[in-house]
Amino acid sequence: MTLTQRQARMLADMTTPTPTQHAIQVRGLTKSFKDVEVLRGVDLDVPPGSIYALLGSNGAGKTTTIRILATLLRPDGGTAVVNGHDVTTQAHDVRASISLTGQFAAVDEILTGRENLTLVARLRHLPNPGAIADDMLARFSLTDAGNRRAGTYSGGMRRRLDIAMSLVGNPPIVFLDEPTTGLDPQARLEVWAAVRELAARGTTVLLTTQHLDEAEQLADRIAILHEGRILVDGTLAELKQLLPAATVEYVEKQPTLEDVFLTLVGAPTGAPTPTPAKETR
């Protein structure tokens, strides 16, 4: 598909860096594993206090990018600065500024929710770990389940506990690598509400996802990563302008299966209420 001149200009405007301070800034990032090029010159600018979605299919390089930014991998080339610190020369300072939540909840299922949080607070050498645990349980609506073993939690509850554990110590930047992998629709909405709450408190969130609706619902800005390169980076409104203007059609909107499911079982707190079917005129 060939871009029109207008689309090319819009892409250039959207990918030109601004002089403002960024929570995360990446330039020309490359990474290969043997003969496989995974990242081929990635550029990113993540504003502070925003939700930034890195959208791409399996194998696009999303997790590799996150692992480099979290100092778990060294890049082959390019630069990456997180919270003002270079990921290769100031790795310790980067680690003190971030928290990483992987694709699967990393909670100890033998411990209770409160014990998981208390353990993390103690490992971070924070004062009053019990009070910190209670505060995080309340913040993520887990107080009633705080004294239950985490192994008894639902998928959404475990994921919320996992995110709560990653926020002990209030890191300014949080990486969420496909945070809703394997979750049912209700649990996914619970995690979405938790992510929105993070940004509302000023935390910078960089999340990876292959779900288009997840990026659309959560992100302030979206970058589409394909075969190790960023194809486009912008707000949802900016990305929609890359396509021809929408045509108006008269259709009857039918409820989706997700609408039916959430209406029957009840949407989690903070999630949007499914809209009834209606005819659009």
Rank of each mutant, 00 (worst) to 15 (best):
R196W: 01
S141L: 06
A237L: 04
R67M: 12
A219G: 13
E115P: 00
G270Y: 08
Q103M: 11
Y153G: 12
Q25D: 10
N58P: 00
G113F: 00
N147I: 02
E252K: 14
H22V: 04
G130L: 11
R6C: 07
S57T: 13
P172I: 03
R124F: 03
M157R: 08
L212G: 08
L264S: 15
G84V: 02
S166C: 07
G169E: 12
A199G: 03
A12N: 09
Q241I: 04
R124Q: 13
L236W: 06
R229F: 00
F175P: 05
L69C: 11
N83E: 05
D220T: 12
P255I: 02
V120M: 03
R196A: 05
P274Q: 07
P276S: 11
R221H: 12
G146S: 04
T180H: 07
M136K: 13
L183P: 06
G169D: 08
Q5S: 13
K253F: 09
K62D: 05
T64L: 01
T204Y: 05
G234K: 06
T2N: 15
N83W: 00
A91W: 00
V81I: 11
T118E: 08
L243Y: 11
E249P: 00
Q90I: 01
V265P: 05
R27A: 15
E252Q: 14
R201N: 15
E37Y: 01
A164C: 08
Q217E: 15
A237Y: 00
Y52K: 14
V87G: 12
R201C: 09
G56T: 06
R124D: 03
A200S: 14
R74K: 15
L11Q: 10
S166E: 02
L117R: 08
L262G: 04
R281Y: 09
P75F: 03
L3D: 15
V232D: 04
A138Q: 14
L262I: 08
K278H: 15
G182E: 05
R6G: 10
K240I: 10
V251C: 12
T204P: 05
L161W: 06
T280D: 12
Y153W: 04
R122P: 00
